[in-house]
């Protein structure tokens, strides 16, 4: 299940533009890793390069190595589609498939891949995923209604259910709460804490309290100026980052003396 990700000397490009440079980090299994930093420093870019979503953008590419439990994700014979099945992703804005019911949304990862399932089996997958996402009680009576008919927070949990229904080892979340109200945010934070027993979780957030509340380790990204590549400035246990960071820049950012 949950797996360790080792990143070494990772450079990430959009065409000729070097967006993120020289990242070395080891992301622990069964824990939550938070990524923080000012806007535009490459957090999303880095996150998307972990499950090869980055290269979906025309011209985008990476150099360096990302290894998950011994397997080189960018190896010559690694199928990016396979990588994404093992490393799921939740986006900033909830994006359920508008043509599908709640049920179909959850089972989408299996169905879209043409996997044949018995009704009982898929029922089971859907229920477990929805329970896992703390959504089951709210939607169990209307599984056949459109997924886009849910509230924003429910939609986001639906997207989490959809991601975990595929059975990934790692969950990447890019500002999953930024479009949500405080109540829904708390619901999702609780959910993350539950999920970390089973998954490696990496979350990008602009909310310091959130990072402090949920994560075990925190990475701080920064960039020197416009047009410069972003860098991972500091990566440490969350407690240390928020109380006694190694770097001056980290301390400035956290105490709000910055950007």
């Amino acid at each position: 299940m949950a797996k360790r990700i080792e990143v070494s000397d990772l450079n990430i490009y959009y065409g000729d533009f070097l967006a993120v440079e020289g990242v070395n980090v080891s992301i622990e299994p069964r824990s939550i890793t938070a990524l923080i930093g000012p806007s535009g420093c490459g957090k999303s870019t880095f996150l998307r390069s972990l499950n090869r979503m980055h290269e979906v953008i025309p011209g985008a590419r990476v150099e360096g190595k990302v290894v998950m439990d011994g397997q080189d994700l960018y190896g010559a014979d690694t199928d990016p589609v396979d990588v994404r099945r093992h490393i799921g992703m939740v986006f900033q804005r909830p994006n359920p498939f508008p043509t599908m019911s709640i049920y179909d949304n959850v089972i989408a990862g299996n169905r879209l891949n043409g996997k044949k399932m018995k009704k009982a089996e898929s029922d089971d997958v859907v229920e477990r995923a929805l329970r896992g996402a703390n959504l089951w009680n709210e939607v169990k009576d209307r599984l056949d209604r459109p997924g886009s008919g849910l509230s924003g927070g429910q939609q986001q949990r639906l997207c989490i259910a959809r991601a975990i229904a595929v059975g990934p080892d790692v969950l990447l979340m890019d500002e999953p709460c930024s479009a949500l109200d405080p109540i829904s945010t708390l619901a999702i934070e609780d959910l993350m804490t539950e999920l970390k027993d089973r998954f490696t979780i990496v979350i990008v957030t602009h909310n310091m309290q959130q990072a402090a509340r949920v994560s075990e380790s925190t990475g701080f990204f920064n960039l020197n100026g416009v047009g410069q590549p972003g860098r991972l400035i500091e990566f440490n246990p969350t407690e240390k980052i928020f109380s006694n960071p190694d770097q001056k820049a980290t301390e400035d950012y956290i105490s709000g003396r910055f950007g």
Binding site: V81, R84, F91, P96, F97, L112, G114
Partner: peptide, 26 residues
């Protein structure tokens, strides 16, 4: 919306299945 394509890719769905099963139905 591009988000739907990305949502599908992120589930480990190949591009052609994404087009056939997500983009076209939408």
């Amino acid at each position: 919306p591009n988000e739907l394509r990305e949502a599908s890719y992120a589930l480990g769905v190949p591009k052609w299945r994404t087009i056939v099963k997500v983009v076209l139905p939408t």
